[in-house]
Amino acid sequence: MTGLYLGVPVNVWIIIGAALVTYAARLGGHLVLSRFKRIPPRVDAALNAVPAAVLTTLVAPAAVTGGPAEALTLAICLVIGFRLPMMAMFCIGWVLIVALRAAGL
């Protein structure tokens, strides 16, 4: 998008807006929760589930919306990820996706 608004490129305004809503999200959760004196058990259980819950949503659609190369790479990574350290799994996954795509899957 081109053009100026108040002498500043519209793209820059969009970036500033994106930065502000991102910081608001990063600060806001804490500001709301710090109103609790003691965290109820179910809220605590919910918060403990957050990382796995969110990160899964960044993986699962990628497994079903790509082709066989993508699905197979993630499936193999899932299996070896239970046994190998993170970086080893990551490197094997990288080799797999390149090899499987090169093989035409």
């Binding site: 994106a18 806001g28 804490h30 918060l47 403990n48 957050v50």
Partner: peptide, 25 residues
């Protein structure tokens, strides 16, 4: 429209509300 782009960025980053609440502890 710019506001839709900003809203989409917020939607992707909404998970940080949860990180923030969890990290606050």
């Amino acid at each position: 429209a710019p506001w839709i782009i900003i809203l989409s960025v917020f939607a992707v980053n909404f998970r940080h509300v949860l990180y923030s609440a969890a990290l606050g502890r």
